[in-house]
Design a protein around this nucleic acid. Sequence first.
DNA 1: CTGAAAGCGCTTACAG
DNA 2: CTGAAAGCGCTTACAG
Lengths: 336, 336
Amino acid sequence: MRNENSSKNTIEDVARLSGVSKSTVSRVLNNHPNVKEKTRRLVLRAMRQLNYKPNIHARRFASGNSYTISVFLPEIGNQFYGRILKGVEEELDKYGYDPALFPLLSRERLKRFSNPNAAAYQSDGFLFVSLDPEKLYHLNPFPLSRPIVLADGYSDKFDCVYVDNRLGGYLAGKYLCSFSGEFFIILIREFEFPLSTRVFLERLDGFKTALKEKGIKLPQRNIISVDFSLGGGQIAARDILQTAGSSLNIFATCDLLALGVVEEIRRAGLSLKNEVRVIGFDDQPWAKDYGITTLHQPIEEMGKMAAHFLMERIRGYKGVTRAISYKPELIKRSSA
Amino acid sequence: MRNENSSKNTIEDVARLSGVSKSTVSRVLNNHPNVKEKTRRLVLRAMRQLNYKPNIHARRFASGNSYTISVFLPEIGNQFYGRILKGVEEELDKYGYDPALFPLLSRERLKRFSNPNAAAYQSDGFLFVSLDPEKLYHLNPFPLSRPIVLADGYSDKFDCVYVDNRLGGYLAGKYLCSFSGEFFIILIREFEFPLSTRVFLERLDGFKTALKEKGIKLPQRNIISVDFSLGGGQIAARDILQTAGSSLNIFATCDLLALGVVEEIRRAGLSLKNEVRVIGFDDQPWAKDYGITTLHQPIEEMGKMAAHFLMERIRGYKGVTRAISYKPELIKRSSA
DNA sequence: CTGAAAGCGCTTACAG
DNA sequence: CTGAAAGCGCTTACAG
């Protein structure tokens, strides 16, 4: 009971047609440098003629590599993870590797990952995005003996790639302090532990620090939590507009929220920049179109570097643990 | 350059320790019926002693099966897909199969799936959730010669499992018509083609039909589109409350929106049921806690049946194409 | 119910 | 730069 793949041409057929050995075909397949250019072309032509597709299972079996990395992430439903993934995929493509995606989704679902034989552990390396593997281990002690890298998160123990969110919050706060009026921050309601990310709390922290330097205190009621959505931003904006004065400075902590806020400000007929300042975070591709002042963070780049670190480890790199911290940049546009 | 897996015990070691042949160990591994109970126990004990883990790559290679199905879905960021996935996983577990997840995410990202060698096509079967494979083919003609099943979607050509959304909308409309006042529907803004789902438009359609039967026409401005989020529901509710009269009937088309609406109704100090009726859709586990009247749909069950159909096909079932349509049930609670 | 043996399609030293 | 050969760890008829 084998599926239709098995009737296909093999490396043997390619070898025969091109008049070389299987070894050479294999070398061509794996971009091995020691192949004469002429031979390579011969083999490639034969592959094309036969419409040859290597049997991935044979390859994995023979080499002992899965050519796959496992990507653990809270979910895959917003632009941030889409962009991280894009960076990861671009980098992995260079090595003929693929990501296998494991969205954790809910605390209950973590059980699926407690079995060390689970599909999630059949890969050559592990990428944790916005997730702390040690917190996860704590609940489900499983053995991860292969390389681990973190993206959008920090740890002393593993290579990691992240944005300095505290600095981002600080820059937002500092800039907004150049205006007068009341100050607000809109945060994302967190996932439940251990899927929670500290990102938004760090932005809050930096924001507070900046305000404090100017002697400004942020009242608790000016810290507003909503869900990650346009509507979340809109609703927060309406709440602010109902109760606050006429000069407002709002740090929306992500562009999607900022967009919701901006829409409501406009709907209310208020003047952006003169009456209300709004700063987002992310610098999503569309932020420019809406004139959203924001903190730029290189999301694809983070994914790319994380994948790069991981591939280095998979290929045997044994150097010390590394951390790259990206500094967010304030991009001034019409919203502030 | 083989990774640490290769130093592990093999089927050979287990055979030696338990004093049987490799064939028999393999049979135990695959739950083959023709193994004496005593032998099976012997083998299992040896496996435990050696902490034996079968080499998945060898297994796939030798059998020609990937023991994997590819699940294509728009994204994996909300409870609906989490629950579908849960059902799929439960069913696949029975067969020792695993899902490989392929969230399409954006139209641009579809390019990744145009290569017939892509990881997405290395599996034994394909599950399309909320997605129409024919629309996808149309953009990227790729050859899918292995079984295909649809969940949360309909097609004449493939086995499929879906909810009768038109009926759901109709039931919501019919029930709300038993109250007087103004009528509203809140919809989800769609993904861009070809990732769009027709689900919400079908609910709208059924809703309109029910109203029409009672001679009620739904004005265009009472059809409100928002993003899929709590905030979306809240914002829609506020818009409705600002402009509408005192007796309102709102079909929120999913529980998350309904919850947002209910929260705003309460905040506005209005009386649910007496002044405002709200109906959701889904019957999420938490809908009961919030007293949300809703249309129940069996989400995990859909995932389960879809996976079941697919496994049947993978195992050689050749019968005619099947479609299961689940009828949503109106669950009356305090919100309407 | 069980075993011996062939085979799955690659990769990888090794020798040249 | 290339080839012959061994080997990766399973599954699967086949024979008994």
